[in-house]
Design a protein around this nucleic acid. Structure first.
Lengths: 345, 345
DNA sequence: TTGAAAGCGCTAACAT
DNA sequence: ATGTTAGCGCTTTCAA
């Protein structure tokens, strides 16, 4: 057993002393290798290696004002959609040499605002995913440092959003081709920008296709929002329901099953997100696939650009969406053969 | 439009000057309020408020050597089990005033090791969840700073683990009570400690209950591992399979369905984790529930303790497990009535 | 090409 | 109770 006292980590001074040079030389050898004699550089690097020296990021941050750390805020980590965003962001951050701090805002604007404030000084920028913050707060945040939005647009801020215009059109066209004449949109949180866009898109597409859209809700965008939505939908007698997201759709389908309604025979169900699980729930869910990992990755890349260049730019990146048709959608029962109104018998 | 130049953030010096006191007084007023005259304190705090002063964490970190940041490393963020761990960890970290950095190791020991090195200087400690690192590496990491393990035990390191002894007994007893006489364990990655423990527990419990256990694998602990496992299981003719985790179990059941095998009629399936999705897959999965959020939270709490007290301690926290019986398990077909061997016909 | 020295913003002795 | 001062580890002028 060696006398392993937890020895102090070597500092740049230690390296300089050991190498017989000034600290500034060590610093240069590390960050601007070309500005130091190749010979001394190699010597310095050898000592660095020998001592296992690693620069202290706090000291660097103090000097430069940048931490090489960015924050990603999501409404709910356990929602598989955001898990995808996180994964993509994590990968892109690692690739850009940035450290990723994660925050769960618990679907709350207040929590989100607090996190932005708390983390503001420790990070170089934010990726705000499905933020619940009003535009004003967003712009204020953007004044303090780079901000990139995911699935939310705000004038002057860069963002990565799914192409909901195309997506909602795909959904409505699908429903129309099945001969549905109207549908219900089971909405999510009122502050949800993507929910708003989805509804706008659905209305426009319905208008174009001659369907009649109705909006219910708001419901919690989780499985627990399902029962309320299902009951309302059942009571309405609609033939199709488009849900704010897959979690809600799955929760809704469970309740539907409990209440004896068959999907899609009695009601067709469509979701948004195409989360893991949408393919193995019962019945497998027809849903609009977004590229969540791509979204996370693109957002971080855009942020990295701003962090590095210090140049704010406000491009909007539109990510394609694609309707994945599974078994939760079908033709509505024709009124004449509807079991519930079968005469006689 | 105001001439909003992005003015320099106020420092402690600005506050001191404005308040007409020394910087140390400001510092004290903020961190040790009781050690400063109530009157001056209030004045200082007012100025702090007025200027919108927020301490620079980098400067604090440089001085104290602590960053009030901890890292959580998980093998795969998109696995709902780890999403739970992350959520719990995030909540506990916020409660303890710690910032949480997240790392996805992509099921790779090399990536994990790299992350530990890269983040080592920027965080006060690590929570390593289902780490793939060998004991030696773990101990080395623990020398550099506090480490808490989730679902992995290593001598001398604090950890939070699920009670697999009880859990595997529950599984085997359930299978035995259904009159299964043997079962297959579809194993996960060879480096997985929890996989190892699960297998050990299953063997012991099987021994006690008089069942015959077989181990197949390793398989990828994801849905994509399912097909290989399903095919092997089918070929073996076993009546029951216990899968390394729910993702694998669900992937396996899909393949089983594709190949025309009925669950549980032809084969009973058991998973580990009780992820979201285990309740709405087809058929709903019998699985051993772990308290993933609790695990994440406990681990962070244990880490916070070490970070604050600087006192290493190595307690093992055992989290209860509970078998959730759903519809993927049932009695094996009695050999006499087996459809596949029905004579004649 | 290299070295000396001045901070970055904050906290913690040490003085008063 | 408050002020003065010396760093924490690093980068960056400015000189040599």
């Amino acid at each position: 057993m060696s006398t392993e006292r937890p020895h102090r980590r070597p500092t740049i001074t230690d390296v300089a002393a050991r190498a017989g040079v000034a600290t500034s030389t060590v610093s240069r050898a590390l960050s601007r290798p070309e500005r130091v004699n190749v010979h001394t550089r190699e010597h310095v690097l050898a000592v660095v290696e020998e001592l296992g020296y690693v620069p202290n990021p706090a000291a660097r941050a103090l000097e430069s004002g940048r931490t090489r750390t960015i924050a990603l805020l999501v409404p709910d980590i356990t929602n598989p959609y955001f898990a995808g965003v996180i994964k993509g962001a994590e990968r892109a951050a690692a690739a850009a040499g940035l450290t990723l701090v994660l925050g769960d805002t618990q679907e709350s604007a207040a929590t989100e605002e607090q996190l932005v404030r708390r983390l503001g000084r420790s990070v170089d920028g934010f990726v705000l995913s499905a933020t619940r913050l009003p535009d004003d707060d967003l712009r204020r945040a953007a004044e303090a440092g780079p901000v990139v939005l995911v699935n939310r647009a705000a004038r002057g801020l860069p963002c990565v959003v799914a192409d909901y215009d195309s997506g909602t059109r795909q959904i409505v066209d699908h429903l129309a081709s099945l001969a549905h004449e109207s549908f219900v949109f089971a909405g999510g949180p009122a502050e949800s920008w993507s929910g708003h866009r989805r509804w706008l898109g659905l209305q426009a597409a319905a208008d174009a296709a001659g369907l009649e859209p109705h909006r219910f809700g708001p419901y919690s965008p989780t499985m627990s929002g399902g029962p309320a939505a299902a009951d309302a939908v059942l009571a309405s007698g609609t033939t199709a329901v488009v849900c704010h997201n897959d979690m809600l759709a799955i929760g809704l389908m469970r309740r539907l099953a409990q209440r004896g309604a068959m999907v899609p025979r009695d009601i067709s169900v469509v979701g948004f997100d195409n989360i893991v699980g949408a393919d193995f729930c019962t019945p497998p869910l027809t849903t609009l696939a977004e590229r969540s990992e791509d979204a996370g990755a693109r957002a971080v890349e855009a942020l990295a650009l701003q962090v590095n260049s210090r140049a704010p730019h406000a491009a909007t990146q539109l990510l394609p969406t694609q309707l994945v048709i599974r078994e939760s959608t079908g033709a509505p029962r024709s009124p004449a053969s509807g079991a519930s109104e079968a005469p006689g018998r």
